[in-house]
């Protein structure tokens, strides 16, 4: 009874809350990191070093008036932020934060579930998130959001192809779709997959930036061009949901990249004898560290690079990333067969 119902329930609650808190603090982290890059201080007023800023933001956003434009499609307008947020959260169901550990005398896996199609599950759930963006822009019944949502959805669909093709080569390398088994296979092969598939790693990273609508691919919310993008008409907590979903997606992409390429919860070089002291750091700690490193790169890129233009972005996706991804699949297949 405890094993089948209670423990998963506790894990779900824990992961959900941890994610939501993590997401709000991502906002603070982003503001801080970018501020440091730009020789500023970032938020400093709420709490020491602005540490309570996310709470203040949340309170502010919840208390704000929630406006629905008169000519908007009311139901769709309300549903859109939820459609964006939910997929971002439920992907965490299959992300392995650590192996099976002994907790209070019980064998507890540090993941909610291990589906045998884990990777595909993430991809498919992420593809649902597009709806929120399209519908948000359409339901606002306003020109700029519509334009932005069209851009965003076309971008997401195109880069989905590239990312999925990249994942295919990873699946071939790992020989499984299960997230847990992918990590285990990295342990078995004595190598993180970043060293096996460096091209796929770069492709996945670029695709991930585009999939999460982050700079330099943040076309959908290019505030200099489209005054805010598809969520222009949103206010209060609904706006916040779009915002939080973006950060949640960033965390998802980082976690997936960590799992696929950086050995998930494994300590660096787990098979090298003299580095075994690294194993004393808990496995979930390694996972968080690697994910965090990824997130940092996300922010760093945003602070450094200008924005692509929409057509250039599509060209990059279709004419560069997808061909390379397909070539990578072919090469992976050939190597797999030969060796």
């Amino acid at each position: 009874m405890i094993d089948t119902y209670l423990i998963p329930l506790v894990k779900i609650l824990f992961v959900l809350n941890a994610t939501l808190i993590g997401v709000t603090y991502m906002v603070l982290l982003e503001r801080k990191v970018i501020a440091w890059v730009q020789v500023r201080l970032g938020p400093m007023r709420v709490g020491p070093y602005g540490i309570l800023q996310p709470i203040a933001d949340a309170v502010k956003l919840i208390l704000k008036e929630d406006i629905t434009p008169t000519r908007a499609d009311k139901w769709v307008f309300t549903a859109a932020p939820i459609i964006v947020m939910v997929p971002a959260l439920i992907t965490f169901a299959v992300i392995p934060f650590g192996p099976v550990v002994n907790l209070f005398g019980r064998q507890v896996p540090l993941y909610i579930t291990d589906v045998n199609v884990g990777l595909l599950y993430i991809v498919s759930v992420a593809s649902i998130g597009v709806y929120g963006i399209i519908l948000g822009g359409w339901a606002s019944n306003s020109k700029f959001p519509l334009l932005a949502s069209l851009r965003a959805s076309a971008q997401l669909i195109s880069y989905e192809v590239a990312v999925t093709m990249t994942l295919v080569s990873m699946i071939m390398t790992a020989g499984t779709l299960s997230m847990v088994k992918i990590v285990e296979s990295q342990y078995d092969q004595h190598l993180w997959f970043i060293f096996v598939q460096p091209v796929a790693f770069v492709l996945f990273f670029i695709g991930g930036l585009a999939e999460t609508n982050r700079a330099p691919f943040d076309m959908a919310e290019a505030e200099q061009e489209l005054t805010g993008g598809f969520h222009t008409e949103y206010s209060g907590m609904r706006f916040a949901l779009f915002f939080l979903a973006e950060y949640a997606n960033m965390i998802v992409v980082s976690s997936v990249a960590t799992t696929l390429f950086l050995g998930g919860w494994l300590a660096p070089f787990p098979n090298v004898g003299w580095l075994s002291f690294l194993g004393y750091v808990p496995s979930w700690m390694w996972f968080l560290l690697k994910t965090f490193a990824f997130l940092y790169v996300f922010l760093w890129v945003r602070a450094t690079l200008p924005r692509y233009r929409y057509d250039q972005l599509m060209r990059l996706g279709w004419k560069v990333l997808i061909p390379i991804a397909i070539a990578n699949v072919v090469v992976t297949g050939i190597v797999k067969v030969l060796f």
Binding site: I34, V37, Q38, A215, P216, D218, A222, Q224, A303, T304, L305, P306, R307
Partner: peptide, 8 residues
């Protein structure tokens, strides 16, 4: 630069 997205 900001218009083109390079905000730093």
């Amino acid at each position: 630069a900001m218009d083109i997205g390079a905000m730093t």
